[in-house]
């Protein structure tokens, strides 16, 4: 089940136009990701982690090479097709949570379902289930401002997971959280990874996150420096809740 390949990156390079010359943010990237992976992109600031996640998420296009996500070559998708890809297959989690402040927790999670065709009762059920996964069912009617940082991030995990995407992209999800909360949300994600077989790809510098990863891809100056598979045992020991 693990070896089913869902993301394939071939000879990818990304350059940004910067005044006179171009700035190379990524180059010579060749990677594959399998279904159910729990992988981190790790590297110093500016190494290209976010850029790579954006390309996988079809928010940005490669300058050279290919990023094939669930059989779709990102650079060849129309706006509409990449919107559909994100809508049904990819969930995003951000460092700053990015919840919509005027809406309730329930609304924020439901929002992810509104572009899909679900009935109101179906949505209600799906949202409550997602809030259950992250342990916030009782906060459904709270506003983001009434929640702690850790709770906000758990709402954003619920929002990313509610449509049961194949892939979740999480950019520094623990950067604004204290140690306890960091462990908590990573454990939550690890549990969902196990139960739903969702592929998680993180961008992180956080040691606490790294302990849970099955695979760590080290980026440096826009290149893959090292791609290591973590021993199963080590991760297992931390998952026990």
């Amino acid at each position: 089940m693990r070896n089913f390949e869902i993301i394939k990156i071939e000879n990818l390079a990304k350059r940004f136009h910067m005044g006179e010359g171009d700035f190379t943010a990524l180059r010579d990237i060749n990677l594959t990701f399998s279904k159910g992976e729990f992988t981190g992109l790790v590297g110093p600031s500016g190494s290209g982690k976010t850029t790579l996640l954006n390309i996988i998420g079809s928010l940005d296009n490669p300058t050279e090479g290919k990023a094939i996500v669930l059989g779709n070559s990102v650079s060849e998708l129309t706006h509409k097709q990449s919107a559909v890809l994100r809508n049904f297959h990819i969930g995003f989690i951000f460092q700053t949570y990015n919840l919509l402040p005027v809406y309730t927790v329930f609304d924020n999670v439901e929002f992810a379902l509104l572009l899909q065709k679900h009935s109101a009762t179906e949505r209600q059920k799906m949202v409550m289930e997602a809030l259950d996964w992250v342990g916030l069912a009782d906060k459904a009617n709270s506003k983001p401002a009434q929640l702690s940082g850790g709770e906000c991030q758990r709402v954003s995990i619920a929002r990313a997971m509610v449509k049961r995407p194949e892939i979740v992209l999480a950019d520094e999800p623990s950067a604004n959280l204290d140690a306890t909360n960091s462990h908590h949300i990573i454990q939550t994600m690890k549990k969902l990874n196990r139960e739903l077989n969702t592929t998680f790809i993180f961008a992180t510098h956080d040691e606490k996150v790294m302990q849970y990863l099955d695979r760590i891809i080290h980026l440096k100056d826009g290149m893959v420096e090292k791609d290591e598979i973590m021993p199963e045992l080590k991760t297992k020991s931390h998952v026990s809740l």
């Binding site: 890809l85 994100r86 809508n87 919509l100 929002f111």
Partner: peptide, 15 residues
């Protein structure tokens, strides 16, 4: 902008 960004991420089209 953050709302628009999230809506884009959730698969809404710019249009």
């Amino acid at each position: 902008y953050s709302e628009f960004g999230i809506r884009l991420a959730l698969g809404e089209e710019k249009k």
